[in-house]
Simulated assay, not measured.
Amino acid sequence: MTSPDRRLLRLGVNIDHVATIRNARGGLHPDPVRAAIVAAEAGADGLTVHLREDRRHITDTDLTRLSEATALPINLEMAATDEMLNIALRERPHAACIVPERRAERTTEGGLDAAGLHNSLAPIVRQLRDNGSRVSLFIAPDAAQLHAAAALGAPVVELHTGPYSHAEGAAVAIELERLQAMATLGARLGLEVHAGHGLTFDNVGPVAAMPEIAELNIGHFLIGEAVFIGLAEAIRQMRAHMDAARA
């Protein structure tokens, strides 16, 4: 930690795509556990991993190894299925972020419908909370979804920043205004607000500047940038962009 103010905005580093590269060829390299250690040394505040149904990213073994190899809190992204619930109850990650998941998608394409899935999500949220994990819901920046998250008793929401990240022209300001309004609403509802998806050095600043947001989760861009400047340097530069915006 370089300054007390840094902790006002945490950086969660998603290391899924280290495992994606490994899985493309098979074998042991590159090892996501090594990436986790590098992330910790470079100033990450936590690790995010998505254990998908098809295991295209990390595997069950990776999750166990990561828990044993680093003291950083692990944020497990998971679908709302019996299989994933049982794994999360066994592994007891610091945080469990429930996300929508479709086998055919390249990456998470939208937010969880917390409002429409209330009855099926309620027992999952309750069991995860009772088991000691901090539950978050990955949702679109939408008032109905925020109210649904609060009603479910999830203490954290992660706002999907994909529409902002991919916006062009006048749409950028519109999406930023939406994110700010929903971050404000989330805080008013007593939720801890996180954000993530598609954030880069170029677009992270306006989101990082929102005082209601406590954490950003960033992965694909950092792993891609690591090809050119190394993972530690990519994380340090992202941390610097976030700190500058928040200051």
Rank of each mutant, 00 (worst) to 15 (best):
residue 13 V to R: 10
residue 15 I to C: 09
residue 17 H to Q: 06
residue 18 V to R: 10
residue 20 T to C: 14
residue 25 R to S: 11
residue 26 G to T: 06
residue 28 L to Q: 15
residue 29 H to V: 06
residue 31 D to G: 07
residue 33 V to W: 15
residue 33 V to Q: 14
residue 34 R to V: 13
residue 46 G to R: 15
residue 50 H to L: 01
residue 50 H to Q: 07
residue 52 R to Q: 04
residue 55 R to S: 01
residue 56 R to Y: 11
residue 58 I to P: 10
residue 61 T to Y: 11
residue 63 L to G: 02
residue 65 R to C: 06
residue 65 R to V: 01
residue 74 I to M: 07
residue 74 I to F: 08
residue 76 L to R: 03
residue 82 D to F: 00
residue 88 A to R: 02
residue 88 A to G: 00
residue 91 E to T: 13
residue 96 A to V: 10
residue 99 V to G: 03
residue 108 T to D: 03
residue 110 G to Y: 04
residue 111 G to C: 05
residue 114 A to R: 05
residue 117 L to H: 07
residue 117 L to E: 14
residue 118 H to Y: 12
residue 124 I to M: 12
residue 124 I to F: 12
residue 126 R to P: 02
residue 126 R to L: 13
residue 131 N to W: 01
residue 138 F to R: 02
residue 143 A to T: 14
residue 144 A to I: 09
residue 144 A to S: 15
residue 146 L to K: 03
residue 162 G to V: 02
residue 164 Y to E: 12
residue 165 S to M: 07
residue 173 A to R: 06
residue 182 M to A: 03
residue 182 M to T: 01
residue 184 T to A: 09
residue 185 L to S: 04
residue 209 A to V: 01
residue 209 A to K: 07
residue 212 E to C: 04
residue 212 E to P: 02
residue 213 I to G: 06
residue 214 A to D: 13
residue 221 F to R: 08
residue 223 I to P: 04
residue 225 E to T: 02
residue 225 E to P: 13
residue 228 F to E: 06
residue 230 G to T: 09
residue 232 A to W: 08
